[in-house]
């Protein structure tokens, strides 16, 4: 078996793998993602009605959704939603909260500093790195273009 050609073998293996049910997965992602965004809209409208302006309302909505996502992760429901919904519950900001709470909970037994606090951003950290990083670069480019 040592003479196995890894390229041919990978091709052969790929022919053996059942294809994911794209259609079903996409429908689930669409519906769950859509529902989470609709809830977001309801929350936004609520904050706008109580007098927050557009930007503050958006921030308050984000905070509320993060709280909901964190809570659902804590009580063990978010991973069950995610199993069906896939990207439908990963892509909304509630999924960002899930990605923070789940490792933080998981590593609690390793202590509150090297466990909870250190692992909290193991998945969400890269999001902040690339998000912050790219926005700063965009800002700098904008500065030189408009100067």
């Amino acid at each position: 078996m040592n003479n196995i050609n890894s390229k041919d073998y990978r091709k052969y293996v790929n022919s053996k793998i059942p294809k994911p049910s794209y259609f079903k997965n996409c429908i689930w992602a669409f519906i769950v993602g859509g529902i989470i965004c609709t809830i977001g809209q309801i929350i936004t409208n609520f904050y706008n009605n109580v007098g927050l302006d557009k930007e503050d309302g958006a921030a308050a909505t984000a905070i509320t959704l993060i709280f909901i996502g964190a809570l659902l992760t804590g009580i063990g429901i978010y991973d069950k939603i995610g199993k069906r919904a896939g990207a439908g519950s990963i892509v909304p900001i509630t999924g960002f909260a899930n990605s923070i709470v789940s490792p933080a909970m998981e590593f609690k037994r390793e202590g509150y500093i090297f466990g909870v606090a250190a692992k909290m951003f193991s998945i969400a950290g890269p999001v902040l790195v690339y998000g912050f990083g790219s926005s700063i670069i965009i800002g700098i480019i904008y500065y030189f273009i408009t100067k």
Binding site: G74, F96, A97, Y112, A117
Partner: peptide, 21 residues
């Protein structure tokens, strides 16, 4: 985005302290 991130840190910590996977 400070509000969202601060919320994620605080709520994330609280949930991790309260709940167990």
């Amino acid at each position: 985005t400070a509000g969202g991130i601060a919320a994620a840190v605080l709520f994330g910590y609280i949930m991790a302290v309260i709940f167990t996977p």
